[in-house]
């Protein structure tokens, strides 16, 4: 059965269903239930927060504090503990409250989770999921608004997932939990309330398979997470001018579905990549290099990137709005491709 759910509730359902099915799963993180140490005033097991954005709401009541673990503010400690527990058969899911906070635990991911299997001869694996929250536009300032997708994608051994719809969020979360490798699962804070049709029964969406969000023949627009929706807005504007854009949501960045992107560019001859992150060493530069390398013969105009600038994310509302790419910038980039066509 399919119902309308938002991304927050779809993720909550994915966690609940998988925890019901697999007792090896525990959740760990800061305030993922909330009110720890105050069970005296919440005796019925109700949580206070359920995470800052409510993704883990009500899981405490069903699974108890043994499986929904509020940690101290100690990311290195609980991310590392998740790695260790996973080595002996558990399936920990940890939450880093904001992607920006990953800095305090990055060594455990960069030098341990990602490498243990490879450097220790392939006998062990690290089946953990690190859920974290990305994205600007929440007026949360420079230390609570970053996306940092490319930081993880750069590291061999990590898988990187960034869904843009509720249906994808649930299916990719179940794949992430069942994957035998460390998965960085990035949730955009400004997409949590976005509705979609979501099947009630558990289902998986494989990693490395892009979703074609809109079909078109004139230009390929690859959107990164929230920018998929901005690209769809731009596609509507372009259609009014007779340009049919194909919008692709890669959904996972490690692994990346190269074939779908290359196939689309082969059809359209034009590529625009849209990402709210900073432009250098980013997913757009990575995808540009892919197409320049393996799809150059298809290109009829220069590849264009639409990204945030090479600056931290400012708090001030008009400055933050100027930071985030909008549909108008995408339309301009596409039009410039038609003006700069090669013969």
């Amino acid at each position: 059965m399919t119902r309308t759910l938002n991304i927050k509730d779809a993720l909550n359902e994915a966690l609940r269903q998988e925890m019901e099915a697999d007792s090896r799963i525990v959740l760990m993180g800061e305030d993922i239930a909330g009110g720890a140490g105050r069970d005296d005033i919440n005796p019925d097991g109700t949580d206070c927060w359920g995470g800052v954005f409510g993704v883990t709401k009500d899981l405490l009541g069903q699974f108890g504090r043994d499986r929904v673990v509020d940690t101290a503010i100690a990311e290195t400690g609980f991310v590392g503990a998740a790695i260790g527990a996973s080595l002996v058969g558990m399936r920990p899911i940890v939450e880093i409250m904001f992607a920006d906070f990953i800095g305090t635990s990055f060594d455990q991911l960069l030098n341990h989770a990602a490498k243990l299997r490879y450097m220790y001869g392939g006998k062990v694996s690290v089946p953990i999921v690190v859920r974290t929250v990305t994205g600007a536009g929440f007026r949360a300032g420079a230390e609570h608004s970053q996306t940092l997708y490319s930081l993880y994608t750069h590291v061999p051994g990590l898988k990187v997932v960034a869904p843009s719809t509720a249906r994808d969020a649930k299916g990719l979360m179940l794949s992430a939990i069942r994957d035998p490798n460390p998965v960085i699962f990035m949730e955009h804070k400004r997409l949590y309330l976005l509705d979609d049709d979501v099947p009630e029964e558990p289902y998986t969406i494989p990693f490395g398979v892009a979703r074609i969000a809109r079909e078109g023949k004139d230009v390929t627009i690859v959107g990164v997470q929230k920018m998929v929706h901005t690209a769809l807005d731009a596609a509507k504007l372009l259609a009014e001018e007779g340009i049919e854009a194909e919008v692709i949501d890669p959904r996972t960045y490690s692994p990346l579905d190269e074939d779908t992107i290359l196939g689309s560019v082969e059809k359209t001859g034009r590529l625009v990549i849209v990402d709210e992150s900073h432009p250098r060493c980013s997913l757009p530069t990575d995808i540009s290099a892919l197409v320049a390398d393996k799809g150059f013969a298809s290109l009829r105009s220069p590849i264009k990137m639409v990204t945030g600038p090479h600056t931290p994310i400012p708090f001030s509302p008009p400055l933050e709005d100027a930071f985030i790419p909008d549909a108008g910038q995408i339309v301009e980039a596409v039009k410039s491709q038609f003006e700069m066509a090669r013969s």
Partner: peptide
């Protein structure tokens, strides 16, 4: 604003008053 709006409430700073700034990351 003391940071000309770029910092916001969490990142108030003015080194002329000795305040290096408000940090958003615990510790």
């Amino acid at each position: 604003g003391v940071c000309r709006g770029k910092g916001g409430s969490m990142h108030v700073a003015d080194q002329d008053y000795g305040m290096i700034g408000g940090m958003g990351i615990v510790a």
